[in-house]
């Protein structure tokens, strides 16, 4: 328990990662999924910052921003076509469309 408090940044980062991860995986709403993903990524940067990030590289953050943008763009296209943000509902509609 003492260790946990000593390394509170890491503990906090892991908890945040967990929250983001479950949101991304389990939530049905697309926007909330994207928020989950952003949380997950931020948690990792927190972790790196806590450990003293020396390599001086910015690339992961760039990746994260572009992925978020891509996901949002996909969401917009999905919403225009299916008029909902619920991924299960969208899948159902797509299946019906094909049949």
């Amino acid at each position: 328990m003492g260790n946990l408090f000593n390394n509170y940044e890491e503990a906090c980062a892991i908890i945040l990662f967990g929250i983001g991860f479950t949101t991304l995986l389990l939530h049905r709403n697309m926007i909330k999924k994207i928020i989950g993903f952003s949380m997950m990524d931020s948690a990792i940067y927190l972790f790196l910052a806590a450990k003293g990030y020396i390599a001086g590289r910015k690339a992961p953050i760039v990746v994260s921003v572009s992925v978020t943008a891509l996901m949002l763009a996909l969401t917009v296209r999905l919403y225009r076509r299916y008029h909902t943000l619920d991924i299960d509902e969208i899948t159902m509609q797509a299946r019906r469309e094909e049949a």
């Binding site: 990662f17 991304l24 997950m40 992925v67």
Partner: peptide, 17 residues
């Protein structure tokens, strides 16, 4: 579109881990 979204979600989970 749906396929791409589902692909992205699973892959983001993978990338995160």
């Amino acid at each position: 579109l749906v396929a791409a979204t589902r692909y992205m979600i699973m892959n983001l989970v993978g990338s995160g881990l």
